[in-house]
Amino acid sequence: MIEMNYVIHREDYANAGKVSSQIKQLLKQIGIQSDLLRRIAVACYEAEINMIIHSYGGKISLNINDSEIKFSFVDIGPGIPDVQKALQPGWSTASEKAREFGFGAGMGLPNIKRMADEFELSSSESGTNLTIAFKVSV
């Protein structure tokens, strides 16, 4: 069982993707299967970027055990106004600034859902909680 925690700051575009890079490196060192790792890398990156663009900041926790690699992305608000809409491809609330950086195409959450084996999303004004899990085939 391995547990890692990472802090994400609001609108920290300069460091966008760094945590995902660290996690990718760590999973390569453990020797996670390539096709599984590709799905994890894509989902983790999308979720990290989401947190930077949309939230007031938060935390990424990674838990790895024999059968599963589990992420939780927990932020401190402002929450997703309509979770159902956010899961539709193309729907986006990204700011102008985010779009200038090439983010905000509205594919983030749908993509994450497609990549993950398990997907749980809950949101209120006090924060969003996204949990995704990937099954490890032994």
Binding site: I2, Q29, I30, N65, D66, S67, V138
Partner: peptide
């Protein structure tokens, strides 16, 4: 196995 890999990593 995944179990051994995690132990080695630790």
């Amino acid at each position: 196995s995944m179990q051994e890999r995690l132990a080695e990593f630790a």
